[in-house]
Design a protein around this nucleic acid. Structure first.
Length: 830
RNA sequence: GCGGCAGUGGCGGAAUUGGCAGACGCGCUAGAUUCAGGUUCUAGUCCUGAUCUACAGGGUGGGGGUUCAAGUCCCUUCUGCCGCACCA
């Protein structure tokens, strides 16, 4: 073996050999349990960043570990390759999006190779390849066929800066998530996926995911936002028009003293028409329309409203209630109309006090008399119903269902579950995405592209203009087509799909990536799904993970897949920080993975990023920490190099530990195997697994220093070093492979079985007991392991030191924690 | 405001089931090797005090409690980060 650790030579060498021998290629194999290990595929921005390095290093440890444990491991990689940056490159630098994307992919693929990640590259997919997006389009058609894709005109979020429509989910604090420009509203015909049909199942099935972090499940739960209540139909006074409202508190229906509509509510215009209020109402509506959601919904914003002059009739008591419009009511949620119960809702209360609307108490707490005129806040707790006609005296909790039933009998309402979740808007006025496979014919209307005509290929050489419309609009050879139904002239849909559509099914494509006949082969999906371990950033906790779950459920219902959830276990990794904040160009605190690999090697980079923090936590980048890991690998190298020749020759000799030092080393090895195995398998605590390996290395050096060379047990050392290298293999695969060969290994270390610890070897012959007196450590004593409590007690009490400290005191009791600790509880003798 | 997570040496972090707080690594100090530096090796490194070899006291954001024993459990409070936010 070389005396020096030369990563520059060994890393590329082993990458080439692994590749040449198809070491990581997999096929279905019923003789082994399968394991699908998946990391979120990257957007090909051009270069790997440290977040990628972290994500893929974690995934690679899991994949390699499971492989060594005897699993048939699917570990694929691909590219989430559609998206806006490619178009920006085209606009700003004149590079066609496809060319820009493919060259980025080539570079990042090279970087991933240089990291030595154990992917089955044969299964690589790119969402921008026609062989892939053809099936994205096909899946869109399945959605359409099953009524889950539909088109509607709607007020959509419009980012004036990006000149595009955004999904509700992509609006952050009322601003574009990408450029932070306040979002405006604009009406367009758009395609939607009916994800709301799955709201209840997406919510309920979170319970079937014990392997997901609670944090993510709670975020999804809040996002779906289920609330139960009732739809109550008010009538517009002097008209047949009905105004339905949604309420979670039908028990307070008798306490309604006003009603509020959203400014966009379709009735608003009619209500005030021809009344003295017309002008103020129109002005209020216009102001609200110009305000973005950010301003509309800011908490500090005062609730503001105007009276329309119209009245509604309360269905249960026929009371006239004034109809207002106000900025705090949202058209998108519920029915866009709210009943105002100021006595029992704090927000309504504030609004009523501001505009001098009556406050009518209908829930009375026990032993307390509320007065609507003087109460300082709304009463939102439970109580008995009062002023509520036939329901007087009913506990309000019961009242909820009783009032609802009453409304149902009268035909004036019904029980209803409402969700915050909205349908998924997938249309994008963009070029670089999967074209929506639809055709518009003047005779036949909306006609889906026949499946056999897929893919609808993105034309090349299009023009990019800074308008809100898709560049495809200016591409006549794309737009003009014939109607598949009547053969007449027709136009293609020029919008493309949200890239989240492409990434909602890629994990299925990996199971049969080359299929020309289908999106994925059912038998392969049945073999590989679910993903056993999914790993990625927590920033995808809501959107991507929700959409992928929705797709899986929909495809299940179409009979295309057997599973209802895609990801069995989820690990959300923390961010990589430098100087306490996220690495970014603007802060100038970026550390380039490629430079680190060039300087220290991939093994060092991987080891550091796994060692510096547990995966779920944020990780502070430290150049000195990297040095430390590099030093450690050098230390391992020197250790193995020192013994490699002797160990190879000593192979045949017996290795029974004889001397105490032998036993100690043997025991340390098995303690380490246990620790590393459990840390990887049950906790993903790679940092402590690595520190355990470091301790084993320290132990080997102790052994080497402690015993003269001719007394050292070389067969034992050989066994320890082989196991050490095997334990290191998932973390630092190149150096482990090289050292393995140095120790005489013939096949790849990555084909080795994961070491198993011997429980016998863990048992120490002697243990050090900590002796406490009244909870304070006072002494230590060496005793044989497994000594009975009684003997421990008498032995400890006889110790000089203990006896002297107990002088003049009375022993109250002695607590013995076997092989660990003794606590003598003593009191001053009375 | 609601929900979640976290707070431990100079730093990253460890302590998995209530049982020696600070593993492992970084940094720092001293010494050896080399001797130009670096590398490598050895010893030390939570704080305070001392008769500075294993002696005492204190210590996990603050306060209180349970327990023989608390970083860990309970109550309370402060700070930071993340998510959601007028949801009827």
């Amino acid at each position: 073996m070389e005396a020096r650790y030369n990563f520059k030579e060994i890393e590329p060498k082993w990458q080439r050999r692994w590749e040449a021998s198809d070491l990581y290629r997999v096929t279905e194999d019923d003789t082994k349990p399968k394991f699908y290990c998946l990391e979120m595929f990257p957007y090909p921005s051009g270069n790997l960043h440290m977040g990628h390095v972290r994500n893929y290093s974690i995934g690679d440890v899991v994949a390699r570990f499971k492989r060594m444990c005897g699993y048939n491991v699917l570990h694929p990689m691909g590219w989430d390759a559609f998206g806006l940056p490619a178009e920006n490159a085209a606009i700003h630098r004149g590079i066609p999006p496809a060319e820009w994307t493919w060259s980025n992919i080539a570079n990042m693929r090279r970087q991933l190779h240089a990291m030595g990640i154990s992917y089955d590259w044969d299964r690589e997919v790119a969402t921008c390849h026609p062989n892939y997006y053809r099936w994205t389009q096909w899946l869109f058609l399945q959605m359409y066929k099953h009524g889950l894709a539909y088109r509607k005109q709607a007020a959509v979020n419009w980012c004036p800066s990006c000149a595009t429509v955004l999904a509700n989910e992509q609006v952050v604090d009322g601003a574009c998530e990408r450029c932070h420009t306040p979002v405006m509203r604009k009406d367009l015909e758009q395609w939607f996926f009916r994800i709301t049909d799955y709201a209840d199942r997406l919510l309920a099935d979170l319970k079937k995911l014990p392997g997901w972090p609670d944090k993510v499940k709670i975020m999804q739960e809040n996002w779906i936002g289920r609330s139960t209540g009732a739809r109550v139909v008010f009538r517009l006074e002097g008209s047949d028009a009905e105004i339905p409202v949604f309420t979670t508190r039908p028990d307070t229906l008798y306490g309604v003293t006003y009603m509020v509509l959203a400014p966009e509510h379709p009735l608003v215009e009619k209500l005030a028409a021809g009344t003295p209020h017309e002008k103020t109402v129109a002005e209020f509506v216009r102001a609200a329309r110009y305000l973005s959601n950010l301003d509309r919904t800011a908490t500090e914003k005062e609730k503001e409203g105007v009276f329309t002059g119209a009245y509604a009739i309360n269905p249960v008591n026929n009371e006239r209630v004034p109809i207002w419009i106000a900025n705090y009511v949202l058209m998108e949620y519920g029915t866009g109309a709210v009943m105002g119960v100021p006595a029992h809702d704090q927000r309504d209360f504030e609004f009523a006090r501001k505009y001098d609307l009556p406050v009518k108490v209908v829930i009375q707490p026990a032993g307390q008399e509320l007065d609507g005129a003087t109460m300082p806040t709304a009463y939102v707790e439970d109580g008995l119903m009062v002023n509520s006609g036939p329901f007087n005296g009913t506990p309000n909790r019961e009242g909820i269902s009783k009032v609802t039933e009453y409304l149902e009998r009268m035909g004036k309402g019904k029980a209803l579950v409402n969700y915050r979740l909205r349908d998924w808007l997938i249309s994008r006025q963009r070029y670089w995405g999967a074209p929506i496979p639809m055709i518009y014919c003047d005779h036949c209307g909306i006609v889906p592209v026949p499946e056999e005509d897929l893919p609808v290929v993105l034309p090349e050489g299009v023009e990019f203009r800074p308008t809100g419309e898709s560049p495809l609009t200016y591409c006549p050879e794309f737009v003009h087509t014939t109607c598949p139904r009547c053969g007449g002239p027709a136009r293609r849909e020029t919008d493309t799909m949200d890239t989240f559509v492409c990434s909602s099914w890629y994990f299925l494509r990996y199971t049969s990536p080359h299929s020309q006949e289908q999106a994925f082969a059912r038998d392969k999906v049945d073999y590989w799904m679910n993903v056993d371990q999914y790993i990625g950033g927590v920033e995808h906790a809501i959107l991507h993970l929700m959409y992928a779950r929705f797709f899986t459920k929909a495809l299940h219902d179409f009979g295309l897949v057997g599973v209802e959830e895609p990801f069995q276990n989820l690990l959300t990794q923390g961010m990589v920080l430098k100087e306490g904040s996220k690495m970014s160009k603007s802060k100038g605190n970026i550390v380039s993975p490629e430079e680190i690999i060039d300087r220290y090697g991939a093994d060092t980079a991987r080891l550091f990023i796994l060692f510096a923090a547990p995966p779920e936590r944020d990780l502070e980048w430290s150049d000195q920490g990297v040095e430390g890991c590099y030093r450690f690998l050098n230390r391992v190298w020197r250790l193995v190099a020192a013994y490699a020749d002797d160990v190879r020759r000593a192979d045949a000799l017996p290795m029974a530990p004889t001397k105490p030092a032998d036993e100690e080393l043997w025991r340390l090895l098995h303690v380490t195997i246990k620790k590393v195995t459990e840390d990887i398998e049950t906790r993903f605590n790679f940092n402590t697994a690595i520190s355990a390996i470091m301790e084993l290395v320290n132990g080997c050096y102790r052994y080497q220093d402690g015993i003269s060379a001719n007394e050292q047990n070389l067969p034992l050392m050989g066994e320890v070093l082989r196991k050490l290298v095997t334990l290191l293999a998932p973390f630092a695969p190149h150096i482990a492979e090289e050292l393995w060969q140095g120790l005489g290994g013939r096949a790849s270390v990555h084909l080795e079985r994961w070491p198993v610890y011997d429980p016998e070897a863990l048992v120490a012959r002697e243990v050090t007991l900590v002796v406490q007196i009244n909870g304070k450590v006072r002494d230590r004593v060496q005793v044989p392991a497994g000594l009975p409590d009684q003997e421990v007690e008498s032995l400890v009490l006889k110790r000089d030191k203990v006896a002297s400290m107990l002088a003049g005191q009375q022993v109250v009791k002695v607590i013995v924690v076997p092989d660990k600790l003794v606590n003598v509880v003593a009191r001053r003798a009375s």
